[in-house]
Structure formats: C-alpha cells, structure tokens
Design a protein around this nucleic acid. Structure first.
Length: 298
DNA sequence: CGCGTAACGGTTGAG
DNA sequence: GCCTCAACCGTTACG
C-alpha cells in the first residue's frame, strides 16, 4: 500500500494501533498513532482515574493524552458505558434490506395504489423499520420501480436470508454506535447500559454474536496491555498502576497508588504491546489462549 | 484555567 | 485487486 509500507508490516488484521511501532508525539509528549484508537489500557486508565475523582485536565497531563480525547472518552463512557472505540471502517448497512423490500412488495401487492409515503408510514407503524432505518420515500419509490419486479421473478430474496439483517437493524441507531460495543468496566462506576458480553457489532451483517474485528482484539488485547504495562513498570521502576480489568477494584478502592502528579507515560504500553508476536495476537484474537477472555468480563 | 467541540488529517473496511 | 465512501480515530485550536 502506498500509505505507510513500514507500518503495514507491523499491523495485524484489525487496527491495533498498539501493534504499530510508528507513532507521533502530541503536544503533551504522549505517543499516539494518527487515525487509530488509543490502546485499551490507556482508555481504561482514563476512566479509572476519572472514577477516582481526578480532573480530566489532570488525567490529560498524567497520561499525556489530549484533553479533547480524554473528554471524548469520558463522555462516551458516561453515555454508553463503553470504553471501547467505535467500529472503524466499513459501510453503512443499507436500509433497503431484503426484509424491507419484501414487506414493501407485500404492501404494494395488497394495495397497488398505495403511495410511497404510505408505505413508509406502514414500515414504521408495523415495526418493520424504526425511524433510524426506515427508507426514504424516494428510496421506496426506487424500490417499487426497480426491485419489486425483479423480486417477483426471484421469488423474494428476503425469504432466502431472512436472518441476515434482522439481528442488526433493531440496533441500527448509529448515534450510539459505540454503545453497541460496550466493554463494560466492572467495578468502575455504574455505566448506564448494562450489557452482556454478547457484543453486538455496530454494523455489518454478522449473524453471530461477535464484536467487530477490532473490538475483539481491543478487548482481548487488554490482557496484553496490562501484562505489558506491569512488565514495563517493573522494568522501569514504575509503579504498576494498571490493573487487570477482570480483577477490578471496586469503585472506591482502586489501588492505583500513584500520586497524580507523577508523569505517567504510557509509551511503554505502546512499546510493550508491540512486542506481542503476530501469532500470539492472532491466537488471542481467535480465543486460542489460556486466558479467560477479558471480553467476557468487561 | 478547565472543558466542550469543530476542524483536520489520518485509518479502516464493506460494498 | 483496486477504488470509493462513510464510518471512526486523536490532536489541535478555538470559544
């Protein structure tokens, strides 16, 4: 690829910024990879520190993450209960799913004189769509014009994959896309949306219970990060202030010792996590490791 | 000074 | 296999 050939060599399947050895340095001296999410360990740390009552500006300075980012992560956490970044990339799922098309077809057959706007109302009132994924009137017109006829011949493709989109459209509201992939922080406050570990992808026609690819690795990478951070801390004399998410302290009892003025540079998190071998990472991503997946605990 | 957020340049992945 | 597009990212700067 023309973009960053060097980076590519260090990038694994998903956008693990953690696995890139090239980063930039922000005004605070922190390391970041442009376009990629902060490591989960850092995200987790931000929330932990906030839970301790440390001001965002202090968190920003301590972790050397821009205050805008701290603000964004905390806002998202308060809103969705998730520390995870949203799903990056991919295309917005189409609203004209086979199911919707089939329903439009059905309405049209029952009432050939029905208007597109009436169909739209019916899609809403009948619960086939919600306000977020209901097709526009023009889309419905186009469907009536183009697809219905074809579907008659094809015997309604919707029936062939009735499950394909059904599971995702109820969760379509992308305004809270991140909320669909909540890595709930146990013991850190009480996030608003209690969720199971069955993480729904914010988009994409996955039919199984599986987070987006990078969400998976982000979650699972936590094990690496915390181990790595601890190792780095040990190696550098840092206090191991990062806790394993699956062994969280209760909200009031976070054992982070450090004095908030300490310069906590998470550069080690980047470096250490970059040491993860591709094989190991892939194994982690595929769940082929002995660790109890933090994903199930988050 | 602290915080929220728009703008920006970047990455990603489905279609 | 490449391209497009729209999602997301964190940083920066501004109010």
């Amino acid at each position: 690829m023309s973009r960053h050939p060097h980076i590519l060599e260090n990038r694994f399947t998903d956008g693990d910024a953690q696995c890139q050895q090239y980063g930039e340095v922000n005004q605070l001296g922190g390391v970041f990879v442009n376009g990629r999410p902060l490591p989960n360990a850092v995200r987790l740390r931000i929330v932990e520190l906030a839970q301790l009552g440390i001001r965002p500006c202090d968190i920003s300075r301590q972790l050397r993450v821009s205050h805008g980012c701290v603000s964004k992560i905390l806002a998202r956490y308060h809103e969705t209960g998730s520390i995870l970044p949203g799903a990056i990339g991919g295309s917005k799922p189409r609203v004209t799913t086979p199911k919707v098309v089939a329903y439009i077809k059905e309405l049209k057959q029952k009432d050939p004189g029905i208007f597109a706007w009436e169909i739209r109302d019916r899609l809403l009132s009948d619960g086939v769509c919600d306000k977020y994924n209901v097709p526009s009137v023009s889309s419905i017109s186009r469907i009536l014009r183009n697809k219905i006829g074809a579907l008659v011949h094809h015997h309604s493709g919707a029936s062939q994959h009735p499950h394909l989109y059904n599971s995702i459209y109820p969760t379509y509201p992308y305004a809270t896309a991140a909320g669909a992939v909540p890595a709930k922080l146990p013991g850190v406050g009480s996030p608003p949306s209690p969720v199971t570990h069955c993480i729904a992808p914010p988009r994409g026609p996955q039919t199984h219970c599986w987070p987006s690819s990078h969400s998976v690795s982000d979650i699972l990478a936590n094990a690496h990060h915390h181990a790595a951070a601890a190792a780095a801390a040990a190696a550098t004399g840092f206090r191991p202030t990062v806790q394993h998410p699956s062994v969280p302290s209760t909200a009031g009892q976070v054992t982070m010792a450090p004095d908030p003025t300490q310069n906590y540079n998470y550069y080690h998190m980047y470096l250490q996590s970059c040491n993860a071998t591709p094989a190991a990472s892939l194994a982690v991503m595929n769940g082929h490791h002995g660790l109890a997946s933090p994903a199930t605990n988050l």
